[in-house]
Design a protein around this nucleic acid. Structure first.
Length: 647
DNA sequence: AAGCTCTGCTTTTTT
DNA sequence: AGCAGAGCTT
């Protein structure tokens, strides 16, 4: 691996903790991999290195790269997200971490459980926050390690009486979680951090496990994660890499200012910088630099391209979203016909929803693509239905799964389901529970047959998925009008299940490592265009990048308007998007918004004082090549083009 | 106790 | 425009 002097200095640094402040494209990943390789070359045993990344995807990628540097030894390095690392460690030390075969639940399940907890607190005529709002509030408080009460009092506008009710409701949620032995995402970090900090023997043991902690995307770690790093360091040394301008996870409790106070928080530490950009051409960086300079927050970033000059980014205006999507697709096709591979192209979207026009056209024109981010396979309703049947058979305490499975049946509603859950809860073991259910079941006998089916084949997850899919098909067909479109997802699920030898491993793996539908469908390495959310795009790159819907209400997103910090975070989201491009950056936007009624306030929403309504407003001439989008075939219409108007 | 219908609310981003 | 929840009907 070739390193520049700055990178080498970071990689070979010894004797203190390090924060490497690295701008976009300055070789962050390479530096971390090189650091690991260098440590191993210095004689550090790979198992003494812990590599914490932001996504599983990033972890896989880094281990892959490390393997090509140091060979098989690479897989001895433990690499994963904070959540993975914590869960794995807790499962290995179940007694110390009070683990009792907990089921990890995702956000959907959390909301469902909160809904149950919330029911008691609703009064007619008075509004009570929605389940998802409650989940968010409680999650944010925990991730920022603040008492819930303090968070509600200081950062929300609920009146004191409401605050009390919310606190009670969340207490009820926590109680239910405990009874059902659920662990939500926050619990994983929280329990780990709590015991790490409060049980000295565990702390000593864990601190003795690693000599080097390598942390990627430091700017997006939240206080709870900081606490974990803090508890694990010394003698283990921190090697953290991050970029304040790419902090885009404030909604998860991250604060980009944290990297600025690194040396105060971590005694005996230094900050190093990487400033040379190896990814993009200067023109692309000029645009990204301009965007940051427009910010009232001083980022003190000015990326310089090691590669030199290239093509000016393009900013293309379209009449409507459909034309925009069609143009992008046609452009992709044209490039592909010209000999380019699909995989050299990445389309970046602000939200999963915002990509739906494009997805429609890509499908129509048969362009292979994979979607990263957004709704995952495991979150779609029909897949959940099937998984809940399996979960019910696996655990008699999995309240949410039971309710979902039971109410799938005609003639069974929440009252009956609640009664069953109640009864199951009393039983000590799965066998006892099964026997109890058999003896007390008076409804449709097929309900039990489904459960038996799973138990019978529990050694072969793929078979379970296939058979229960067939079993549930008649029910699901009735439930979902577009069943035919959904059916293929169950085949994907079976394919994923084939990799597992037990149902628990199958269920556990995908709780923390969701798979997108297109991902599951495509074989690894198959040539395809990448369609990706800006958030998921962090850490990736591509020769040609399209940034679609770079419009008012999208950048910044309407939801952030009126809040200065959130608007500025949107700037960083756009910055992340722009800096993914190696050779070509194409921004597209359209000036009409699909449906006429913009129900969420739309363009009328006001931006904050000192903030901006639209991040590309006032973009200077010459920094991008402005074009009016013209479709190849459809030159019809009335012969006019509606010009773009800044809002 | 279930099931159906209508209203109203929502749509950011992720482990 | 699409879905979830409330409330009404069976």
């Amino acid at each position: 691996m070739e390193l520049n002097p700055q990178q080498r200095k970071a990689v070979e640094h010894t004797g203190s903790h390090v924060l490497v402040l690295a701008g976009a494209g300055t070789g962050k990943t390479m530096t971390i991999v090189a650091r690991a390789a260098w440590l191993i070359a210095q004689g550090v045993h790979p198992s003494r290195i812990l590599l914490l990344t932001f996504t599983r995807r990033a972890a896989r990628e880094m281990i892959g790269r490390l393997r090509s540097e140091v060979g098989k030894k690479a897989s001895r390095v433990l690499a994963g997200t904070f959540h993975h690392f914590c869960l794995l460690t807790m499962r290995r030390m179940p007694r110390q971490f009070e683990m009792e075969k907990e089921t990890v639940i995702d956000r959907d399940d959390q909301i469902q459980l909160m809904r149950l907890a919330r029911a008691r607190f609703r009064e007619k005529g008075r509004s009570f926050p929605s389940a998802s709002k409650l989940v968010n509030a409680c999650s944010y408080a925990r991730n920022t390690n603040r008492p819930l009460r303090e968070y509600l009092e200081r950062y929300s506008d609920f009146d004191p009486e409401m605050v009390e009710k919310i606190i009670d409701c969340i207490a009820e949620y926590n109680k239910r979680k405990k009874v059902s032995r659920y662990l939500d995402f926050d619990d994983i970090l929280f329990r780990f951090a709590r015991i790490l900090h409060q049980v000295p023997s565990v702390r000593d043991k864990l601190r003795g496990m690693y000599d080097h902690l390598l942390v990627d995307e430091m700017q997006d770690t939240n206080p709870l994660q900081w606490l974990i790093l803090d508890g694990l360091r010394d003698p283990a040394e921190l090697f953290c890499v991050g970029d304040d301008a790419q902090s885009i996870y404030a909604f998860r409790g991250a604060d980009f200012r944290n990297v600025h106070s690194f040396t105060e928080r971590v005694p005996r530490s230094v900050v190093l910088r990487l400033e040379e950009n190896y990814r993009s051409t200067q023109e692309i960086l000029d645009l990204a630099n301009w965007l940051l300079e427009e910010s009232p927050l001083g980022y003190d970033k000015h990326l310089r391209a090691n590669r030199g000059k290239g093509i000016l980014p393009r900013l293309i205006d379209f009449d409507d979203r459909f034309e925009e999507a069609t143009w992008v697709t046609e452009d992709l096709v044209e490039r592909h016909e010209g000999g380019a591979t699909w995989s050299d192209h990445m389309v970046i979207t602000r939200s999963a929803r915002a990509a739906r026009h494009l997805e429609a056209v890509l499908v129509e024109m048969e362009v292979p693509y994979r979607f990263i981010g957004g709704t995952q396979l495991f979150q779609s309703a029909h897949v959940k239905d099937l998984l809940c049947l399996i979960r019910s058979a696996v655990s008699h305490r999995d309240e949410l799964a039971w309710v979902r499975y039971l109410t799938l049946w005609r003639g069974i509603g929440d009252v009956t389901a609640a009664r069953v859950v109640e009864g199951l809860r009393e039983r000590q073991s799965g066998e006892e529970a099964a026997a109890w259910l058999r003896d007390n079941w008076s409804k449709d006998p097929r309900v039990l047959k489904g459960l038996d089916l799973v138990v019978e084949h529990s050694e072969a997850p793929a078979e379970v998925v296939e058979r229960s899919g067939e079993f549930l098909a008649p029910l699901l067909e009735k439930k979902y009008p577009n069943w035919n479109a959904r059916k293929s997802d169950l085949e994907l699920l079976a394919r994923l299940a084939r990799r597992h030898r037990s149902l628990t491993s199958f269920l556990q793996t995908y709780a923390l490592d969701p798979v997108s539908r297109t991902d599951a469908r495509r074989l690894e390495g198959e040539d395809a265009v990448t369609l990706i959310t800006a958030h998921s795009a962090k850490g990736t790159e591509s020769p040609v990048c399209y940034l679609i819907k770079v419009e008012p209400n999208m950048y910044p997103h309407v939801r952030s308007l009126g809040n200065f910090d959130e608007e500025e975070e949107e700037r960083r989201v756009l910055y992340v998007g722009m800096t993914r491009a190696r050779d070509e950056l194409i921004l597209t936007r359209s000036c009409t918004w699909g449906s006429k009624t913009v129900f969420w306030g739309g363009a009328t929403a006001a931006h904050s004082a000192g903030g901006v309504a639209y991040l590309l407003h006032g973009i200077p001439d010459g920094i991008v090549k402005r074009e009016v989008g013209v479709l190849q075939e459809t030159d019809s219409g009335d012969g006019t083009i509606t010009p773009w108007r800044d809002v």
